[in-house]
Simulated assay, not measured.
Amino acid sequence: MESKEQWKSELRQWVEGGQLRQATFSQLRSKEGGAPAKTVIRPIELKGALHYQFQYYIDNKVTHENIPQPEAAERIASWLEQHYKQALFKTNDADVQILFSKKGKASVVTKPATAKQDTESLTHNRQKQRVVQEGEAAPFMVELGIMTKDGQVIAKKQDKFRQINRFLEMVTDVLPHLPADRELTIVDFGCGKSYLTFALYHLLAVKQQRRISVVGLDLKADVIAFCSELAHKLGYDNLKFQVGDISQYKDQSSVDMVVTLHACDTATDAALVKAVEWGASVILSVPCCQHELFRQIRNDAMAPLLSHGLLKERFSALATDAIRAQLLEVVGYRTQLLEFIDPEHTPKNMLIRAVRASGGSAETERKWREYLVFRDMLQVTPYLEKALGERLPQG
């Protein structure tokens, strides 16, 4: 048993000393008080100052409140006493469980620490400064059902929220490669419901006040109608959507950025060819359903791998994206293959990010020779090589 003053004093020391890593409150004293079923508290850094973030779990929603460090100890103690029977505090030195009796007396059990962290790892666990911050409502996210009107992320949309921010981080990284002295032209091939198209417009046109013109292209007329209506509702005047096929699209003579997300099989290649023809400064592509090479690959030495359909499918997808990245290098791009967070938890989470570069002829020849060795080893004739045609050294 422990007095109220004693555990509160220890709590104050944990908070003021920056030792509290997490607190979890559960088992409501009363279900009629309207308190959340669970509250989780973590340290975060906001604008260079330590705060403690309260995460409130109510039904299927999670809301947040950030409390400055000087006020946190008193708030944590009062919130626990008012609403909960049980708490688990994780500190640098120990895990401390507090159980309250019906009369409000505290019973404390202390165990070895499971959340001991150094200063560096604490910094990594502090709230990430995302492009779109929770608590600041982005109109497009509200309309698409990701956020509430007060800026809280809906629990079931947390994965989509993270995916959008991951995409915007990747866009932010390549902004120095885009022209800064004129209007940017951006095309999104296979835009679908356009979560990321709207996010891109929000970042560049709304937050950064850049002059841009964005076109979203998709084969589904009902999806395009939905996106067009939403763009009009949001006042995104320079964001247009139209029905069309990637390979047949000819409405632009030059484009600065090409985005293609989950365009199926060689539709991704068709988008890459368009980007190269336009001389796009930036290409962002998340390939999907890479079936082309699956039907072509032949190599007796790789029989233990290729004889298993599942392994052959995965290898074919990796080989396809390796070929795409290498051919983009050959025609003058610097490429990276990055992990892209997919909200549906599928393996289709590889993003090819390419920026226009000035490579010398010797470097081009080396990349081309590497490609030929790889291609011939697999005995394949990739669509992308044929479509790039005269832009490749053999052309």
Rank of each mutant, 00 (worst) to 15 (best):
L11P: 13
L310I: 15
A280F: 04
I164D: 00
M302P: 13
S9W: 14
K157S: 12
H291F: 04
N92H: 01
A354K: 03
V243K: 09
S121V: 13
F89D: 00
T39M: 12
G145D: 05
V40L: 07
D376G: 03
I186Y: 00
N165L: 08
Y84S: 10
V174R: 02
D342Q: 05
F140V: 05
T266L: 06
W14L: 09
L293V: 10
K61E: 14
G244F: 09
S316Y: 09
A77R: 07
V282I: 04
D222L: 11
H124Y: 15
L272G: 01
N165G: 02
K111Q: 08
E390L: 04
L261D: 00
I186R: 01
L337M: 14
T266G: 05
V331D: 00
V373P: 10
T185I: 04
P287M: 08
K274P: 03
M147V: 07
W278M: 03
V132E: 03
L184T: 07
E143G: 08
K274D: 04
Q152F: 15
E313D: 12
A319K: 12
C227G: 01
V108Q: 03
L311I: 14
L230T: 03
G332M: 10
T24P: 02
A23Q: 06
E365K: 12
A221M: 05
D269T: 06
K116C: 05
V331S: 00
S358W: 10
L234S: 01
S9C: 13
I154W: 09
G216S: 02
L203V: 08
T266V: 10
E10D: 10
I44K: 11
A275D: 02
G151M: 02
L306Y: 11
Q97F: 13
W7F: 14
Q27A: 08
F340D: 05
Q86S: 15
L305D: 13
K38T: 06
G359I: 15
S3M: 13
L178A: 03
